[in-house]
Simulated assay, not measured.
Amino acid sequence: MTASPLLSLPGAVQEESGSVAVHYGDPLREQRTLAEGAGLVDRSDRDVLVVPGADRLSWLHSITSQHFERMADGAGSEALVLSPNGHVEHHLVVAELAGTTWADVEPGTGAGLLAFLERMRFMLRVEPALVTGAWAVLGVVGPQAPGVLAAAGLPAPEREYGVAPAGAGFVRRMPPLGDGGSAVFDVLVARAELTATADRLLAAGARPTGSSAYEALRVEARRPRFGVDSDHRTIPNELQWLSTAVHLEKGCYRGQETVARVHNLGRPPRRLVLLHLDGISEDLPAPGADVLAGPRTVGRVGTVVRHHELGVVALALVKQSVAPDTALTVGGSSAAMEPEDAPAELDDTRAAARDRIRAVRSATIGR
């Protein structure tokens, strides 16, 4: 992916292996901007696909986890492509607008998704295409985001996943980040208009905000990223995607049997939790690092961030049997599980889990 033109903004520091800014000089201040004001987040590294054609909604309905058949114009959603065994192979954020279904996906995954869609076309009237070279996504995030959009002459849909046309592109409202106070809007623009649209939003009051700030609030909200917080064994039931990207009342899609069986049993093999790390090491654990309880591996870490209020925190998939007060380590750092992420049957261990979090945080403060 070509480096984003927004890297020319003052203070921009490019992601080590990416094409957008990880921050613009002050990552913690940028987090506060997203939590209290309005930030412009460059998400132009995401891949974008379009699916026009008369059969698109019934076709997508049959091959994904989401209910597309009755999706109205101006609606959005999330959806998954699953393996025959129910493992997550792709995660899509979708918008239906003016006879075309749009999907944006994790950077670098668009070609693989397109290859899958092409295999599933058969004789149907659909024309999936990868259009990342022509279209890009920006994020406007924070409690003041609706006002910024209005000042920039862009719509701000009121309902979650609502989609409103904006020029040749659209604005889509997503679930909030952080503690719930940060509204999230995805703005799809022609890539040729990326700089001009960013300038409009900055002039309207948004502040440049790097990907690290966005990631910090995403982790706080327990919103997973495909391929980072998921692995080849992940099923939807282990993540909040079961409620955002799966329609439990539809059937006849690949992997549906696993989803329905685990949902009915009510106990997936793993669960997504927030881990508090001691933060003593300057090097954060990499995605995929083992979560250990003594010598035993009990899970894997996904995204690890430095949060402006919580300290070093991470999303992790851990075995369902791990109690929230279990002493954990990740990459040599002490870790404690957020007690609120415990299943109901483990409620009696939450007080001990809170004590463990305090101990982990005190180790950081005492550095």
Rank of each mutant, 00 (worst) to 15 (best):
A156F: 14
V189S: 03
L124N: 11
V187K: 03
G37M: 14
V141K: 01
R121N: 05
P176H: 04
V322Q: 01
A206I: 05
S4Q: 05
L57H: 12
D104N: 11
M174T: 01
R207I: 08
D355H: 09
G331H: 02
A245T: 08
D229K: 04
A206K: 03
D347V: 12
Q14H: 03
L328T: 00
V48N: 06
F226Y: 13
A198I: 02
L113N: 00
G74N: 03
G302C: 06
E282F: 00
L57N: 12
E249L: 15
A152D: 11
V219C: 11
R356E: 15
Y253I: 05
G18R: 00
E220P: 14
V259H: 11
D278F: 02
G25K: 12
L272W: 03
H61C: 09
P157F: 08
L292S: 07
A286C: 00
L201R: 10
R29M: 09
G86F: 05
T64H: 05
H307N: 08
I365E: 15
G167C: 12
T326P: 03
E96D: 15
T258S: 11
G279T: 05
Q14R: 13
P285D: 01
A221C: 14
Q256G: 05
E257C: 08
L310W: 00
S212I: 03
A206F: 09
D179C: 03
G332K: 07
V105P: 01
P27E: 06
V137N: 00
R356M: 05
S212T: 13
V312D: 00
W59H: 11
G299E: 01
G210E: 08
A316T: 07
D26P: 09
V228S: 09
I365R: 14
